[in-house]
Write a protein that binds this DNA or RNA. Structure first.
Lengths: 101, 101
DNA sequence: TGAAAATATGAATATGTGTTCATATATCAA
DNA sequence: TTGATATATGAACACATATTCATATTTTCA
């Protein structure tokens, strides 16, 4: 078993909490395909720009996404491959459960 | 890419949200080793029985754990292997990040 | 420089959620 | 059945958090 103390478990729950919001998970899924600018995220998902910016800040602070400036646009990308992997692991579980019904 | 509509993404975020609480993630980790009764969970983690019961209900409703009665004790176990797998995927990410620092 | 475009941020609000405390329910043992 | 043990549940409370609205910041271009 890996080394897991209370602190690590707390960080782990914090990490999972980031995925525990519909808006954020939709953004993550979108970024799994390719980088997207803030307004494009908003347009694509049908969300207000402010909502997207607020949630991007949470994702950024948690190191799940990283910004890149291009002119006056900001493109966001997933920080590493783990993010998509975790998304897919969860998704597989969900779809598996659904099938069972 | 797998089939993901809005509903599925909502369920996915709901699923991850369950992992997004320290108390619940601690319970999950404990159950990864073997079945444990409610009071044993409380004693082991230093939590009140009520707290554990409340969180177990959330885990049960989300089909993350399943109860088994044995006398007047209730033993809880993880519902399937996916749960531990997701826990470990997240943990690997956390430990990986920590190393990077 | 000034206006427009793109994004970020702060305050306010409403809603969700975890814990606490008290109590109910269920099972066993005598 | 009665008391004790084990667990579940409900209400109340405090706190976290997502969205909205207004506005600030940054960059580009004329």
């Amino acid at each position: 078993m890996q080394n897991v103390n209370l602190d690590t478990l707390f960080e782990l729950s914090e990490f999972f909490r980031i995925f525990g919001d519909t808006t954020r998970i939709r953004i993550i899924q979108l970024l799994m395909e390719h980088d997207v600018s803030v307004n494009d995220i908003a347009d694509t998902l049908g969300l207000e720009q402010s909502v997207v910016s607020h949630q991007l800040r949470i994702l950024r602070t948690a190191n799940l996404v990283k910004p890149r400036r291009e002119g006056r646009k900001m493109f966001y990308a997933l920080d590493d491959e783990h993010i998509g992997e975790i998304f897919n692991t969860g998704l597989t579980h969900i779809l598996h459960k659904k099938k069972g019904k």
